[in-house]
Simulated scan of single mutants.
Amino acid sequence: MLGPTQTAHAAAPGDPVVLPVRDALQALPVQDEDRTGYERTRFRTGSTPDRDGCHTCNEVLLAEAPTAPTLDPNCTLTDGSWYSPYDDTAFTTARSLDIDHLVPLAGSWDSGASTWAPAERQAYANDLDDPRALIAVPATSNRSKADQDPTTCPPAKSYRCTYATDWIAIKTRWNLTVDPAEQAALTEVLDGCPTTVLEVTRAR
């Protein structure tokens, strides 16, 4: 746990960060975004870290299913159920869902990932170690959200406090920056939320 005078930005990879979420937001460096040079192909997706043959997308679907799906030897999912907090809607067909990066790949590039090594970007794109990083949502919602951040894409009202907290957690985990408008939008959301303690392990 960080001491009272330490900041999340000062933590090292592998360190736990435990802070009130408003303090964690204030600890994030503020910097204008820069999308120069961004291409989605700079983030390699689809790794199978546990070597069971499942794509990262299916790993997320398996982890997030309230009702476990049936998994065949080719890692095809059938049956099962899922809930998308983006839309406050339940689903029973895996094919209806996409896997969204809560903080989009482009957004991570804008706020620091442009300087990372390719292996770090791959790790970010396939982050299964923090369940907040990747989320199963309807394909329509994922495409509508696209590369937007909390300034332009608020989710379902019932999810906004969790969304803001999780956004800050992922930015803290990966030592990313926020821009002034993003910081202001997150602050506004948190002003209507109960006090929450953020817990996250630094990835870099």
Results as ranks from 00 to 15, higher is better:
residue 135 I to P: 03
residue 61 L to Q: 08
residue 93 T to K: 08
residue 170 I to E: 07
residue 24 A to F: 10
residue 137 V to Q: 13
residue 45 T to Q: 15
residue 159 Y to D: 04
residue 191 D to Y: 04
residue 89 T to H: 14
residue 2 L to S: 07
residue 161 C to D: 03
residue 81 S to D: 06
residue 116 W to I: 06
residue 129 D to T: 12
residue 21 V to K: 05
residue 109 W to K: 00
residue 77 L to E: 03
residue 87 D to S: 11
residue 59 E to H: 13
residue 41 T to I: 10
residue 13 P to A: 10
residue 125 A to L: 05
residue 35 R to M: 04
residue 173 R to H: 00
residue 138 P to D: 02
residue 97 L to D: 01
residue 139 A to E: 06
residue 79 D to H: 05
residue 3 G to S: 13
residue 52 D to Q: 11
residue 27 A to S: 11
residue 201 T to N: 04
residue 141 S to N: 04
residue 195 T to G: 03
residue 108 S to D: 01
residue 136 A to N: 03
residue 190 L to M: 00
residue 49 P to E: 15
residue 141 S to V: 07
residue 5 T to P: 07
residue 120 E to R: 12
residue 43 F to Q: 15
residue 80 G to R: 11
residue 81 S to E: 09
residue 6 Q to G: 07
residue 175 N to Q: 09
residue 168 I to M: 08
residue 156 A to M: 01
residue 82 W to A: 02
residue 163 Y to K: 04
residue 126 N to P: 09
residue 60 V to K: 04
residue 3 G to H: 11
residue 29 P to V: 01
residue 19 L to P: 04
residue 187 T to F: 07
residue 103 V to E: 03
residue 83 Y to G: 05
residue 179 D to W: 05
residue 36 T to F: 14
residue 105 L to G: 08
residue 50 D to G: 02
residue 143 R to G: 01
residue 68 A to H: 11
residue 204 R to D: 15
residue 67 T to D: 14
residue 141 S to Q: 09
residue 11 A to T: 11
residue 43 F to L: 11
residue 91 F to D: 00
residue 73 P to D: 15
residue 123 A to K: 12
residue 43 F to P: 14
residue 44 R to E: 14
residue 134 L to F: 13
residue 136 A to Q: 01
residue 10 A to L: 09
residue 127 D to I: 08
residue 93 T to W: 02
residue 147 D to H: 07
residue 23 D to I: 06
residue 111 S to N: 11
residue 150 P to R: 05
residue 61 L to S: 04
residue 186 L to M: 00
residue 59 E to N: 08
residue 143 R to L: 04
residue 113 A to F: 07
residue 76 T to P: 04
residue 90 A to N: 07
residue 47 S to E: 12
residue 101 H to T: 13
residue 191 D to H: 06
residue 189 V to F: 15
residue 124 Y to W: 10
residue 43 F to M: 14
residue 132 R to D: 04
residue 10 A to R: 02
residue 64 E to Y: 06
residue 64 E to A: 14
residue 183 Q to L: 02
residue 90 A to Y: 05
residue 138 P to Y: 01
residue 17 V to P: 08
residue 136 A to P: 00
residue 157 K to Y: 05
residue 112 G to T: 03
residue 155 P to I: 06
residue 9 H to G: 09
residue 165 T to P: 02
residue 3 G to Q: 12
residue 43 F to G: 12
residue 180 P to K: 09
residue 4 P to M: 04
residue 134 L to Y: 12
residue 197 V to R: 00
residue 127 D to R: 02
residue 55 H to E: 15
residue 2 L to N: 07
residue 62 L to Q: 13
residue 133 A to V: 15
residue 3 G to M: 09
residue 185 A to V: 10
residue 58 N to L: 14
residue 13 P to G: 08
residue 68 A to F: 13
residue 46 G to I: 12
residue 121 R to M: 03
residue 63 A to K: 11
residue 99 I to M: 03
residue 182 E to N: 09
residue 24 A to Q: 10
residue 60 V to T: 11
residue 164 A to E: 14
residue 151 T to H: 02
residue 8 A to K: 12
